[in-house]
Design a protein around this nucleic acid. Structure first.
Length: 816
RNA sequence: GCCGGAGUGGCGGAAUGGUAGACGCGCUCGACUCAAAAUCGAGUUUCGAAAGAGGUGGAGGUUCGAGUCCUCUCUCCGGCACCA
């Protein structure tokens, strides 16, 4: 027998497939339905790691299965090729970001080919290609025309020494991670995209999508719609009013102070006449150094009181003190809150720390917002008077004191009524903010804007797109965008638009590139449109989108927004393009930690492919655990050898294959296996699909002869997992066309049933015996067998049987 | 802190509310071998000689029956808007 030589086999078939073009996808195949299976395209970091294999090779199993089932499947690949690492290579190594990126892509293409995936490379999409970003730019100008893009000031983390904007993750304890300088919050003009316009649609349209609930919840919570009230607190002896946002207007009678965010515009006005002005200014300075994340984190709450300033509670006319505290965020709601320490955990903590009054509102439906139980249940802990249900309730004329029963209305009704009573209004707010896309970076899509001599912004007309990224730039950071130093860009602008015109020097966030790349796969070479509408009709919406859990709230949400915006402009047909979304987990190092060079636990897939073959690596990754859940799996060097062993046993089994009809129990087990493998693949449970095939193999190894017909079906089941080896065996058995073009086997329902089954007998929930019975046995019969079973008799003798339960084909439960 | 997820043998994991641990790894013993590797066979949740009992992060609850459902809780992982 020829040995299983994975290197020869894999090379041979990869070459053959490419020559025959069996993975080339047409837009239409008569009699076949189109199916688009999408995986997130890859950043060209330079080297394929195991995570890439997990992301691309395992979904390839599913794509191949769908194809054998008779679908015309597109499983495309491309590169998300703009981004910071290329720019860092420029800064640190003096490399040209473009050359660096294209070299990496070439390496990765070759590595990707070694997977034996069914990528159609003729559809490849590269986001840094001007032919692609022309359309990114064009869409931006369309957004601008449709009031979906605008310019606004936002706060950014700024390192004064490095003169650069920092991501939150680059700021540690308020200091720059590179140089340790104190980071400040700086105002920066940015191009913004109006994602908040779609906040409701982004929540409401989730209903129609076949996504796991956890992904939907994560997005809903990220958008953070809350329905509440805006209520004004007049400042005592002043015309000024503080507008607060609250979801708990029903607790208005429990307000004991009001808090403003340090950035709130009223702070400046109100602090003019207070005694502790110096404290206030120093507090504001301190809070400017903190990032938003720091401010929300589990650190002790801080604040400072505006001495002598009181706000008037519109519900009862009480004076309450006004504080400034950075646990209130300027960007959320109105940047001011009414504090009800008895019903809100954060207010409670703050009130305890600064010894402020705590006043409780009691009513049947008034919840306590996580305030600790001992305070909830023991009124003696409250520092001030308690407002009880009897003190106020609502009638049609508004709140009345000392009458009626507050418990009769829901807290939502209470909120509505009290809001009306104090002249506030019901509003919706969102945690979601508009999307700032300006970056002071080089390696990104140039924002297609020019400024006239008066400084007004104008979109660059379509005929001048792509608006090319200039190449004459110095990458050394100096606080300005690298494009600001391109002579060519400024000259080009003046040449086209006239003297005194200046280009925008910022580039776009790379999430913009990845918001629409899937459209381009359908029509990657089109120079007239980003994608032909007819082709969209044929392929969209996308049947399946698999990707990393880390993209749940950002990339996937941005993409959904992009589709909705394009739909409103009339450029696409659907409001949602991802019918099914599945997230995957991570592959960890053998030590259970995230792979990293510093930990020395990195697995190099190229090495293992050399040693054991691509089929083994694909299959091991599929075997580790269910796909489409966010569990992380450690790479086990022994485990991968076990899978290799399985493939070798399949290889060796061909020695037993005979052209006979003689079969023992094979038909039942074979048809059960077809059923199991098919169902498990549908559910992304590739691990149990493989285990099903192992069980069949284990059985056959004990047989003298394996019928050729059955073995070929087995190879077809295995083909999506181990495409090279099965192709080889398929041809050795005399087939001349590719196994991957063959049709997925069907199982015969009648052949998946055994005639005898095991029924267990439980006594008070404990298994005491097993019965082997005919599959169609009647309940009375099986119970008779159970109570007369010799293992059961000692347990039930001299006891009364209270009841018996028969679960068909499973168990008899005897209750004593 | 907020949002989302996950905890089952030595390890990865399996299990429509119905025999917990399929399948694989590892390990133990045996066969083959001068020997080793490879391969094949048997065994492998814990305690116990056995009968049996315990056991799915922890504490309660619902049920004839709970890994699965409910309440509370602990630990770990992912995301938090300029990494992608």
């Amino acid at each position: 027998m020829n040995p299983y030589n994975h290197k020869d086999i894999e090379q041979k078939w990869q070459k053959d497939w490419e020559e025959k073009g069996i993975y080339k996808v047409s837009d239409e195949v008569p009699g076949k339905e189109n199916y688009m299976a999408l995986v997130e395209f890859s950043y060209p970091s330079g080297n394929l790691h195991v995570g890439h294999w997990y992301a691309f090779a395992v979904p390839d199993i599913f794509a191949r299965y769908k194809r054998m089932q008779g679908y015309n499947v597109m499983y495309p690949m491309g590169f998300d090729a703009f981004g910071l690492p290329a720019e860092n290579a420029a800064i640190k190594l003096g490399r040209d970001p473009k050359v660096w990126t294209y070299e990496h892509m070439e390496t990765m293409r070759n590595q990707l080919r070694s997977m034996g995936a069914m990528f159609d490379w003729s559809r490849e999409v590269v986001s840094c290609d001007p032919a692609y970003y022309k359309w990114t730019q064009w869409m931006f100008t369309e957004f601008l025309k449709n009031d979906l893009a605008y310019r606004a000031m936002t706060k950014v983390n700024w390192c004064p020494k490095d003169m650069t904007v920092l991501a939150n993750e680059q700021v540690h304890d308020g200091k720059c991670e590179r140089c340790g300088s104190e980071v400040v919050q700086k105002d920066q003009a940015q191009w913004m995209l109006r994602i908040t316009k779609y906040a409701d649609a982004l929540i409401d349209d989730l209903k129609e999508l076949n996504w796991p609930e956890e992904i939907k919840s994560a997005q809903k919570n990220w958008i953070g719609r809350s329905e509440g009230s805006e209520i004004e607190f007049q400042i005592k002896d002043s015309e000024a009013k503080i507008k607060v946002f609250t979801t708990r207007a029903d607790t208005l009678f429990g307000v004991t102070y009001v808090v403003l965010a340090p950035e709130h515009p009223l702070v400046e006005v109100l602090s003019l006449n207070v005694k502790n002005q110096a404290d206030i200014f120093s507090y504001i300075d301190e809070s400017k150094k903190k990032s938003e994340l720091d401010r929300q984190q589990n650190k002790e709450k801080t604040g400072v009181r505006l001495e002598g300033v009181f706000a008037i509670n519109p519900a009862n006319g009480e004076d309450v003190p006004v504080w400034i505290a950075d646990y209130v965020l300027a960007g959320y709601g109105t940047g001011a809150v009414m504090a009800v320490p008895a019903h809100d955990e954060r207010d409670f903590e703050f009130a305890r720390k600064y010894n402020l009054s705590i006043k409780r509102v009691i009513g049947g439906n008034t919840n306590h917002g996580n305030v600790p139980t001992e305070y909830r249940n023991d009124p003696s802990h409250y520092l001030k008077n308690i407002v009880t249900a009897k003190d106020f309730c609502f009638t049609e004329d508004g709140p009345l004191m000392n009458s009626g029963d507050f418990n009769n209305i829901s807290s939502q009704e209470a909120r509505t009524k009290i809001t009306e009573f104090v002249g506030g209004k019901l509003v919706k707010t969102y945690r979601l903010r508009d999307w700032g896309i300006s970056r002071q970076r080089y390696w990104g899509v140039p924002i297609p804007i020019v400024y006239d001599p008066e400084g007004n912004a104008h979109p660059i007309p379509k005929e001048h797109l792509p608006w090319l990224l200039p190449t004459d730039v110095d990458h050394t950071p100096d606080g300005t965008s690298p494009l600001a130093r391109s002579k060519e860009l400024f000259e080009r602008t003046e040449k086209i638009f006239g003297a005194g015109w200046k280009p925008e020097v910022e580039t776009m966030d790379t999430f913009v590139d990845s918001s629409w790349y899937f459209y381009r796969y359908l029509d990657p070479k089109n120079t007239e449109a980003f994608c032909d509408k007819e082709k969209m009709n044929k392929w969209l919406p996308i049947d399946l989108y698999m990707g990393g859990a880390e993209h749940t709230t950002m990339h996937v949400l941005y993409s959904r927004f992009w589709t909705k915006a394009l739909k409103d402009i009339g450029l696409v047909n659907n409001t949602e393009e991802f019918i099914i979304r599945r997230n995957r987990g991570l592959i960890l190092g053998p030590d259970g930690n995230k792979m990293s060079k510093s930990k020395g636990n990195v697995i190099d897939p190229d090495e293992i492919v050399q040693l054991l073959g691509a089929d083994t690596v694909r299959m091991y990754l599929a075997f580790m655990g269910p796909y489409g859940v966010t569990t992380n799996y450690p790479w086990d060097p022994n485990g991968v050898v076990g899978v290799r062993r399985f493939l070798e046993r399949v290889w060796r089994l061909k020695e037993k294959v005979k052209d006979v009809n003689y079969q023992t129990k094979t038909p039942v087990l074979l048809h059960k296996t077809i059923e199991k493998v098919s169902e498990d693949i549908e559910k992304f449970k590739f691990n149990t699909a493989i285990s099903g095939m192992m069980i069949l193999l284990n059985f056959w190894e004990k047989e003298e002869v394996v019928p050729i017909y059955s073995y070929k079906i087995f190879l077809q089941l295995l083909a999506p997992f181990a495409p090279h080896m099965t192709e080889q065996l398929w041809h050795e058995l005399g087939e001349s066309s590719s196994i991957h073009l063959s049709t997925w086997p069907k199982y015969d329902e009648s052949l998946t049933q055994d005639d005898e089954i095991t029924v267990v007998v439980q006594i008070n929930g404990k298994v005491r015996a097993e019965l082997l019975v005919p599959v169609d046995i009647e309940e009375a019969e099986v119970i008779k067998l159970a109570v007369t079973n010799e293992k059961i008799l000692p347990w039930i003798e001299s006891k009364e049987i209270k009841k018996t339960i028969y679960v068909k084909g499973k168990l008899v439960s005897i209750v004593l």
